[in-house]
Nucleic acid binder design. Structure first.
Lengths: 139, 139
DNA sequence: TGAAAACCACCCACTTTTACCCACATCTAA
DNA sequence: TTAGATGTGGGTAAAAGTGGGTGGTTTTCA
């Protein structure tokens, strides 16, 4: 279970620390790719392969643009001995990652945000609609 | 697993670098042919043979135009010691490859694009419909 | 048919990027 | 208080990417 929020900064070499608490769940290497709302997503390899399999099983020419969205941007990363990962420039660009970065846990995957963008999104959240969505769970 | 996006340029001798990360999956030599959306596709030899076999098993007179589309344009390429490939003029023409080229991974195959055409396609992608397609996977 | 031109496979050289290693400050928990 | 874990910075060797030379073969054209 990936939970919590962690703030890091990208160093001059482009390296980004990845939360120590996430490493066990994420495995030795994992997949980072584009995600919605201009952030990045990190999936354990198995989860990603499972999703990829589902997508490919629809047909190699079906959902071509979805395949391209997910796979062309994806990269397999392996944290170094200190636990840092190196993201391709394209991915950093997509999520507007320059210096301050926030990584959040989201149960089975992690999200990587520009810290400022994350904070803005948090501030803009409408608690009433969130309350309604929780109620709709019938929990 | 072929993943990621790589930008290269065709040099004056017509050589095109092929991503180092793809070489293991693609094998010593692989097949490049025409593909949909005006790009080229590169399949590992085994994958291509498998697809060809499936196509031919439908009957030699069935899908004649599909056979012609895929096989007439196909070429087997073998990267040089630096990892570069040489594409026939017809194929370069089909994908409008002149100088700037983008190669993307798509799990079991790679796609070769004119960089500008690729960027336009990316920009034209509608994230909402991508989100719907991902949800439809029931992942 | 023969010479010039084009093509291609095979080298080598150089620059940039990445991977791998070590050092150290800070934090956490026993 | 101290040992281990965590986060940050930097040095260095290897890999990746790019450019070009050379010699042999094929193609072109007078």
């Amino acid at each position: 279970m990936l939970l919590g929020q962690y703030d890091y900064s990208i160093d001059p070499k482009g390296r980004l620390n990845f939360p120590a608490k996430f490493r066990e769940d994420m495995g030795d290497s994992f997949i980072v790719t584009r995600w919605l709302d201009d952030c990045l997503v990190a999936f354990p390899k198995e989860e990603f392969q499972q999703m990829a399999q589902l997508l490919m099983s629809k047909g190699i020419t079906k959902n071509r643009d979805v395949q391209r969205f997910l796979f062309a941007a994806a990269t397999e990363v392996e944290p170094d001995k200190q636990g840092r990962i190196l993201l391709p420039a394209k991915l950093r660009e997509h999520a507007g990652l320059d210096k301050e970065v926030t990584i959040i846990g989201n149960m089975n995957h992690a999200e990587i945000w520009n810290t400022q963008a994350w904070n803005q999104r948090q501030d803009a959240m409408d608690t009433e609609s969130i309350a309604q969505a929780i109620d709709a769970l019938d929990f």
